[in-house]
Design a protein around this nucleic acid. Structure first.
Length: 888
RNA sequence: GGGUGGUUAGUUCAGAGGAAGAACGCUUCCUUGACGCGGAAGAGGUCGCAGGUUCGAGUCCUGCACCACCCACCA
């Protein structure tokens, strides 16, 4: 891998290097967990992407953050296992394959169950690896040898074991209830899989005539087609105005069925007319009312969303067609009294957006309450921590109001429910292995339940099923509980909460310690990215165009806890430019190191201010980056490194080191500077490696710091040497301020940047002389001036110099030719006025007894110093103005 | 109805008790031998509104407004 050594192109091009290094990392088996290692374990299970999936920005962010943590921990000496895999994604995958087949004019029913499932497997073998390869492009350091799939043999065994145990414990049951039904997908959905959307509809006021008298009651409904299934009218027990209706009977319009008027507390007497029609078969509330009152359930809509035989003349009509027909019939019979506009939320299938139908059917459920209680306990006890913390509340809220989880799906693709019913005695046999007879009566013609389990059922077991459970494997005991889960807030309920419940129940231990909930990636205007809006930024396009590192660094840098990410190519470019900056800084360093990059010694005696400064800053940056990564402050860490490299290392240190590196300061200075350069670059590359692994690895080998991968290197530590900090930080700041002020004067004098100014004289504050004397060569270099003189009480030469009055002293820039004295006086006066205003505030503050007595001595002292310094500065500016005026 | 987050420079966002910061954009200047994917210097903000706590408030407290999002069996 030495062919790149010392031979870097003029600008950074990610294309030739990324695949090369990824292959090398795999070859060196750097991503493999080792249960036998002496090192402490660190483990993450990947949120398994759907096999149908293609890498989108959410994945890119999610996996970048996981990869950063994994790479960081590896360098810190952990045995890291990042376990990858994919999810079979029941509905999604079945839909995709069905569409695939539909293009060839085949339906799944043409094929039959077995053949169809075979087709899905075929499809999975062919396309299911796409997202895995895309993760590799991103640089994900997963242990690919341990890749799992939710329908693997092992995981299927785990699913069965869990199902059977929960059934035996009474935590899984079967029953006929109203569930959410998608008429297009032809399956039940859990409550979570229904997305509610506000939409404007109508509230229809319909008259139900009394059986025995004129008149009737008016009922408001949004779904007139369900009138056909009405079995009662209900009012609230304490509804005085409708009180006397109770016990009377009315006729259901259009069908003429006689139904009673009953009382039930579910009715809100304030809403509509206070009278509610009860349709137990088509409304979850009405279903409960029906149960309480022993009412019949009349189903009028079938599984495809069409009206059935019970709907009489409307039979065969689609539910929305039927609504129109019913309305027009009601209207012509004089039963439609009023139509009101009404805003309400309509449930849609999260996969296909079809309006969900409340549907009465036999399904399997998990009794959630007892599991949820343990889940709440674990978080309250601090055994699991949400980061950012705010999500804890969201989690509690849902867990405390949790309802039973409908886990059966009328699909073919998924884990088939391990329950067999007996046609002779009706008993249900639930078993981990396929039984050959009814466990109750011994009948041998038992039939397996047709349904499969909700995809999320197997995902809920992911942290332990992937590690080998129910077998007691070394992996399971070493890596469970996992260290960290990184995921999006949108699946806290779907996945995180359920993993916690299942983990606690089956492992008696939480599935992970820290749960980092990351942001949603939106477009630059804050819109959610979606194909239909056409605002999607495809991570693969970005990787092609800018490289994986640029994408990773951008996502990490924009990751601030508690806020969404607004992504644009513009932002990616910014970070891409940074990579180029790092690349070029490395080229400079490399050219200056003369190939000697290992075992560099730094001679403390020949360190200059800027050397001590950059080494001190480096130590600070090392500590802060470590702290940030430990606390999952990705954005802070990335920005810190960005600023350090660009704003301190490149803009100041490298410029100041150039003369020494060229040998202009003698041999020992050259060697020492080279040593400093090595230390700084070595550390910076390490600190950046988790964020931008490809580029740093390339540079690492170009520098020839070692033959190993950066993943095998140690995370940097402060070197602990006394470098004169924090004095050197203060001195450097004073020096930088002077340089900026002089450069500012140059700009003021309209001196072209490349032009050398003849002379700067400085009248320095006491004690600062040595600093400026020792660094005058660098000051001259950075300010492009010919001579730098330190003199005392040095008034400006009238008409020939511009002055900058700083706390550390006055600096006079002499210019060729005369300056515009009026303009210069004006500028100085303006500066003085601003200073005077500030001083006024300081004086007022210090005159305030409350402030002086109550504020910490340190703050008061600082204020006094500020005032003193300011007063001195004003005096000097005044002198300058005066001498300019005299000269006039 | 319940809950969460946000409101700081033109834009996107940091900052969480001691004199307002960054990036992008904007203005002026510069092909200096790492980098024009660069360098230097600038302009730009009563930190959503109203109260309060404090010697001192983007920063803490209480209201309010507006913008997002989540949850809920809103006929």
């Amino acid at each position: 891998m030495s062919e790149t050594r010392g031979n870097l192109g003029k600008s950074y091009d990610p294309r030739p290097i990324e695949d090369k290094w990824y292959a090398w990392w795999l070859e060196r088996r750097l991503f493999e967990g080792n249960p036998d290692a002496e090192k402490p374990p660190f483990s993450i299970v990947i949120p398994p992407p759907n096999v149908t999936g293609s890498l989108h920005m959410g994945h890119a962010l999610n996996n970048t953050l996981q990869d950063i943590q994994c790479r960081y921990k590896r360098m810190q000496g952990y045995d890291v296992l990042w376990l990858p895999g994919t999810d079979h994604a029941g509905i999604a995958t079945q839909n995709v394959v069905e569409r695939h087949l539909a293009n060839q004019g085949i339906s799944r029913h043409d094929l039959g169950r077995e053949a169809f499932v075979d087709k899905v497997w075929e499809w999975k073998e062919q396309y299911g690896n796409r997202i895995v390869n895309q993760l590799k492009k991103l640089g994900a350091s997963c242990d690919w040898n341990r890749e799992r799939f939710t329908m693997d043999e092992g995981l299927s065994k785990a699913v069965r074991a869990v199902f059977v145990r929960l059934y035996k414990e009474g935590l899984i049951y079967r029953g006929k209830y109203i569930i959410n039904w998608c008429p297009r997908c032809q399956t039940a959905l859990s409550d979570l899989e229904v997305e509610h959307q506000e939409s404007s509809g109508n509230l229809y006021h319909v008259l139900y005539r009394f059986v025995d008298a004129d008149g009737g009651v008016t009922v408001a409904t949004t779904r007139p087609e369900t009138i056909l299934g009405d079995v009662a009218i209900a009012i609230h027990p304490r509804d005085e105005k409708n009180r006397d209706l109770v016990g009377r009977s009315v006729l259901v319009p259009l069908v003429g069925r006689v139904i009673p008027i009953i009382e039930d507390p579910m009715v809100d007497p304030e809403f509509g007319t206070g009278c509610v029609k009860i349709t137990p078969a088509h409304d979850p509330n009405d279903f409960l009312v029906g149960q309480r009152h022993g009412l019949e359930s009349i189903q009028v809509i079938d599984s495809e969303g069409k009206m059935n035989e019970s709907a009489g003349k409307y039979c065969g009509l689609d539910r929305f067609e039927a609504r129109k027909a019913v309305l027009s019939d009601l209207d012509s019979q004089g039963n439609l009294l009023r139509v009101e506009e009404h805003l309400h939320s309509v449930g849609q299938c999260y996969r296909c957006r079809t309006v969900v139908e409340p549907y009465l059917s036999e399904q399997w459920f998990v009794k959630a309450k007892p599991l949820a209680e343990a889940g709440v306990e674990a978080v309250k006890a601090g055994r699991i921590r949400f980061v950012p913390e705010q999500w804890t509340g969201t989690y509690y809220q849902w867990m405390e109001e949790i309802r039973d989880w409908c886990i059966s799906r009328q699909l073919w693709w998924g884990h088939r429910i391990p329950a067999w019913s007996c046609p002779s005695c009706g008993h249900i046999t639930v078993s981990e292995t396929d039984p050959d007879r009814c466990e109750s009566c011994g009948c041998e013609t038992i039939l397996q339940d047709e349904d499969v389990l909700d995809t999320w059922f197997s995902s809920a077991l992911w942290p332990f099923s992937t590690l080998g459970w129910p077998e007691q494997t070394p992996e399971l005991s070493r890596y469970y509980p996992t260290s960290l889960l990184v995921t999006g807030f949108d699946i806290i309920f779907f996945w995180v909460a359920r993993m916690i419940m299942m983990g606690l129940h089956f492992m008696k231990e939480v599935p992970f310690r820290d749960t980092y909930i990351h942001a949603l990636v939106r477009d630059e205007t804050g819109q959610k990215m979606s194909k239909s809006k056409g605002n999607v930024i495809d991570p693969l396009d970005i990787i092609d165009q800018y490289g994986a590192d640029a994408l990773r660094l951008t996502l990490a840098a924009l990751t601030v806890q508690g806020r969404d990410i607004l992504l644009s190519t513009n932002r990616i470019e910014t970070f891409r430019f940074f990579l180029n900056k790092l690349w070029n800084a490395s080229r400079l360093a490399l050219a200056s190191l003369e190939g000697k990059t290992r075992d560099r010694r730094i001679e403390p005696l020949s360190l200059r201010l800027h050397d001590r400064w950059i080494l001190t800053r480096l130590d600070e940056v090392i500590l802060e980056t470590t702290r940030d990564l430990d606390g999952y402050f990705f954005g802070e860490a990335a920005k810190l490194l960005y600023d350090f490299v660009w704003g301190e290392l490149c803009d100041w240190y490298l410029e100041m080191a150039k003369p020494a590196l060229r040998g202009e300061e003698g041999e020992s200075r050259k060697e020492t500077t080279q040593g400093v350069l090595c230390r700084v670059f070595e550390s910076v590359l390490k600190l950046l490696h988790p964020f931008i692994p490809f580029l740093t690895e390339e540079l690492w080998h170009a520098f020839n710091f070692s033959d190993r991968s950066m993943q095998e290197e140690e995370w940097p530590k402060p070197d602990g040497e006394e470098k004169g900090s924090p004095v050197c930080l203060e001195q450097m700041a004073a020096f930088q301020e002077a340089v900026r002020a002089i450069r500012n004067l140059r700009a003021e004098a309209r001196l072209a940047p490349q032009k050398t100014a003849p002379l700067v004289r400085a009248d320095l504050k006491e004690g600062l002389e040595p600093l400026f004397r020792e660094n005058s060569d660098l000051l001259k270099l950075l300010c492009r001036i010919e001579r730098f003189e330190i003199t005392s009480r040095n008034a400006p030469s009238p008409g020939k110099s511009l002055s900058a009055v700083l706390p550390q002293g006055s600096f006079y820039l002499e210019v060729e030719g005369l300056i515009d004295i009026d303009a210069e006086i004006g500028r100085l006066k303006q500066e003085m006025d601003k200073l005077a205003a500030d001083l006024e505030r300081s004086r007022a503050k210090l005159a305030n007894v409350q402030f002086v007595t109550n504020a910490p001595a340190e703050v008061v002292g600082k204020e006094r110093e500020r005032l003193q310094e300011g007063e001195a500065r004003i005096l000097r500016i005044k002198e300058n103005i005066q001498s300019l005026s005299v000269g006039e």
